[in-house]
Design a protein around this nucleic acid. Structure first.
Lengths: 357, 357
DNA sequence: ATAAAAAGTGTAAGAGCTTTCAAGTCAGAA
DNA sequence: TTCTGACTTGAAAGCTCTTACACTTTTTAT
């Protein structure tokens, strides 16, 4: 069933059928109705390839994501996919893993499929070394590139992200405000946003060092073990402690790591939050799975995804739009941290609980 | 840059270029090298639309999934996507939600994009009423349809699933074997596999009723609240208990529900597993997030996904293959259940711990 | 050496759609 | 009535590739 069949049955030319199909206004109502009837009757759907050939677009967006089974990334992909769909776009998903070469390869694959844009979900697509981002720039030369949780100042690249530095800075100050000074930062990624988070933590700790005149309140521990392996995370911390390091607070770069920290605390018989306070990141469902429930930073993922798609639609529609959207995260206080005492004289100037509602 | 440009620069015909591109053997080494060089030099990539038009395929598989942010479904999609990629296929992902109409619509959208096959991830795509599955049969008339976690006996539809009935039956018998008789089944879906699970539970409980001569050991509770809302799940159970129902074991239809059960137990001050034993389903990362760690049923998701892709490749390659693959789940015993006592005389014949290693 | 088979290459006909441009229709104005 | 211009419509070219078929060249068998 092709456009020719339809044109024949409707007694018009293929051009007219095509015009009806594309909602062109240059068709009389009578003709339009006639064609529509025939199309309906035979259940005809235009061939997407042929259409793509003619239009050089298929209303399809390429989504790249290192690991779509990751709780956070999966949520992001889901929201993006859903919003795309309501805007009449399809998406081709490509799980690239964390290997840079694979990323570049996947990118080319998507481009060869003539996607209208590419969305990079997650901060691990942008590297510090500008040369390593060449593949992104190459892509941007062909189609708009959208970044979620990362930023790259290059034409035709648009970014939607949270201010991870600020979030971590405030979270750290909040924890200090509850009376804890020896804090461990527990992280597992050096990605674009990973770096920002770490520096936020460091800045807050340095401030503390400066104010107290004591050096080294902050500890930093990288977790390189298997993804999502909570027991292994707990074990990593256990080893640390056994080496004699002491800390009464843990700030984790994501909720899974925080759960590892909670598990560690329980295994060591520490009361949470009295003996050990813990803050997670992302405010995922894991925060509720935790006992006690996990204090975590919510960065409004859904809102960011909406902004990203809106921006994309603007770009695709040829409308002007800012290149970068920066959101602010929000600390959700739950059971793994103590509240800031009402009367406490803050060791750090500035009331953290004010800027983090 | 088209095939014409390449053919000109290489001094051959477009047919030869095309043959080189498609790895046809009817090209001399010398010619091939020459063409390849030119292609390399100009960084040419064939236009996917034109290719699709000619071949009527784009090496693309449609994946449908109700909610790709669901922990379990996301894992499945990830494995499928990854395996597809290693087989040289792309995937178009469509998140349909749970609305039947939306499913049919998405299906047509995928078909219009000329996918080579459609994979339905999750059991909620198949309904009890055969008429409701018409959209699947319609699709199967055009391309192979693969079902993960569901089954439909229709030509050109292939199924890969676990024997949920058996898993639940054995899990229930196991729990009974640990000495618990009043068991609550906690579930949230009436999907294809949801039904199977429920009937597995019911069968085991009826057996118990028959053996003890007492009716009504089993309780069943549906959870209709928001997805992944652990506190809400706990609350649902709390309400039940407050109405005077008593149970010392909970079997949940998935791990999230089981965490809800754990939370409920803790809130009520029950010791787990002494006062309340809990079994989850899917053996997801949540099982490790739990304290104590959750006993759960592992149904080998990755293996199933592999089988599904292998089968698909066979179908696409025109090779014979069975229509249905049925796997057996496996109970992973952890901290939310007691071990079966060595010397206990089983109230139910058949040693559950034997068939569930 | 020669016939027959095999291998390599090119021509041209699609695949199904969009879109330009020319032509046809028809109302209202002159 | 004739002309003008606004609408409609159709013919045909174009988008980029694949592939059947025909033709040429090379290899193999005799």
């Amino acid at each position: 069933m092709t456009i020719y069949d339809i044109s024949e049955k409707a007694g018009v030319s293929i051009a007219t059928v095509s015009r009806v199909l594309n909602g062109s206004s240059n068709v009389s109502d009578k003709t339009r109705r006639k064609v529509l009837d025939v199309i309906e009757q035979y259940g005809y759907t235009p061939n997407a390839f042929a259409r793509g050939l003619g239009l050089n677009t298929m209303k399809t967006i390429g989504i790249m994501c290192a690991d779509s089974s990751d709780l956070y990334l999966a949520k992001a992909v889901y929201h993006i996919e859903t919003r795309l769909q309501t805007n009449g776009y399809d998406s081709i998903l490509s799980c690239t893993g964390y290997d840079p070469e694979q990323k570049a390869y996947s990118m080319n694959l998507l481009l060869s499929k003539k996607v209208d844009a590419i969305i990079l979900v997650g901060s691990n697509f942008i590297y510090d070394n500008r040369d390593d981002n060449q593949y992104v720039m190459d892509a941007a030369a062909q189609v708009p590139v959208m970044l979620l949780n990362a930023s790259l100042n290059v034409p035709n690249v648009y970014s939607v992200l949270t201010d991870d530095h600020h979030s971590m800075y405030e979270a750290t100050k909040y924890l200090i405000g509850t009376g804890i000074q020896d804090i461990l930062y527990f992280y597992n990624s050096n990605s674009y946003s990973g770096k920002r988070k770490l520096s936020g933590f460091c800045d807050a700790m340095e401030e503390l060092d400066r104010l107290t005149g004591i050096k080294g309140h902050g500890l930093i521990q990288f977790y390189g073990g298997p993804h999502e392996d909570i027991p292994h995370m707990a074990h990593t911390l256990s080893v640390l402690r056994d080496r004699g390091l002491s800390f009464h607070g843990i700030i984790a770069a994501d909720d899974a790591l925080a759960l590892g920290a909670v598990k560690y605390g329980k295994e060591k018989g520490l009361r949470i939050p009295e003996d050990l306070s813990i803050i997670g990141y992302n405010n995922s469902m894991l925060a509720n799975c935790c006992d006690p429930e996990l204090t975590s930073i919510d960065n409004g993922l859904e809102m960011m995804c909406n902004q990203l798609i809106n921006t994309l639609m603007n770009v695709l529609g040829g409308r002007e739009t800012p290149q970068e959207f920066l959101f602010r995260g929000q600390l959700i206080q739950r059971g793994t941290t103590r509240p800031i005492p009402w009367d406490a004289s803050q060791p750090i100037p500035g009331d953290a609980s004010q800027s983090i509602p």
